[in-house]
């Protein structure tokens, strides 16, 4: 600390000039961060304790928004269930799918580059376009799957219109957009030393053993990364259900972010929406911490902790 202070106070003129110049260069980011991230974050925390509808006078109401959310909101527990169901299945399944696809693409496959591009394309297709494509796939009347079933004289599958099928159908869509995770996994797989596989092969390990005892542990930091990122984006899922089902049928695809949005922009209950946002933030932080806490037992950092 002493060293730090001495260094600050004993800057030469040239160093001071450099500091100022540096600060000036980074100031657009700092100002942007303060204005567009830090301030909204702090103000949303404040608003979460108010009755605020954008127009009429804001009123301080203490914890009433939070109490209402947990005790007096007819849809809160439904959206919590929906979100936990969706995140709980889609995130691990998405990470596993991306990891397996990356492994597949890491083999000496003919047309490997082509397949890598194919798998990545869904990640860069605008979500609205993806939604339209999936509407055509899932449609009861003219969807590709149901048209086939009809032609075979079989009952159709009401993918998006049945309470039973709606969430699994959205989970399948989420798996389709794993291109970015696949690319990250691919990069990590190419970093796994070949010598480890060679040594294992010499020791008589078969393909499964090599995968389970080398590939998985060596990729575990990236699995952790994708898991955490998937968790964060999973809790924020909004666009696909909004475009495909608008939360139906029977609120079975009404997820947390959609509920938050409805409170903010359909009911104009900004205070309650801010409280919902903070509950989500705290939940995600706690879950992330939990994952990090458990990561010590399953993430391999090459001997480091």
């Amino acid at each position: 600390m002493t060293v730090f202070n001495r260094r600050i106070w004993r800057l030469s003129k040239a160093e001071t000039r450099n500091q100022i110049t540096g600060l000036l260069f980074v100031s657009p980011w700092i100002i942007g961060f303060l204005l567009w991230t830090a301030y909204p974050l702090a103000s949303s925390f404040f608003y979460s304790f108010t009755h605020y509808d954008f127009i009429t006078q804001m009123r301080w109401i203490g914890f009433r928004n939070y109490v209402e959310i947990f005790t007096d909101d007819p849809r809160f527990w439904t959206v919590v269930y929906n979100t936990v169901y969706y995140v709980g299945i889609s995130v691990p399944l998405g990470v596993a799918t991306a990891f397996l696809m990356a492994n597949l693409l890491n083999t000496r496959l003919v047309g490997r580059s082509f397949f890598r591009a194919i798998f990545f394309i869904p990640s860069i297709v605008p979500a609205v376009c993806s939604a339209m494509v999936w509407l055509f796939i899932y449609n009861n009347q003219y969807g590709v799957i149901n048209n086939f079933l009809r032609a075979m004289g079989r009952p159709i599958i009401p993918f998006l219109s049945s309470v039973t099928w709606s969430k699994p159908s959205l989970i399948v869509i989420s798996l389709w957009g794993q291109g970015a995770a696949v690319v990250i996994f691919l990069a990590s797989l190419q970093d796994v030393p070949r010598s480890l596989y060679e040594a294992a092969t010499v020791d008589g390990a078969n393909a499964w053993h090599r995968f389970w005892h080398i590939t998985v542990p060596m990729s575990s930091p990236i699995i952790l990364y994708n898991l955490v990122m998937g968790l964060i984006s999973g809790f924020q899922t909004f666009l696909m259900p909004y475009l495909l089902t608008n939360g139906g049928p029977m609120a079975s695809t009404e997820f947390y972010a959609m509920h938050l949005w409805r409170n903010a922009f359909e009911l104009f209950r900004m205070g309650k929406a801010c409280a919902l946002a903070w509950i989500m933030l705290i939940t995600v932080v706690l879950l992330t911490l939990l994952i990090f806490k458990t990561s010590a037992s399953w993430v391999f950092y090459g001997g480091e902790r």
Binding site: L160, G248, P249
Partner: peptide
């Protein structure tokens, strides 16, 4: 609901 694509 399927004919309307999904309820809502």
């Amino acid at each position: 609901a399927g004919l309307r694509q999904a309820e809502g």
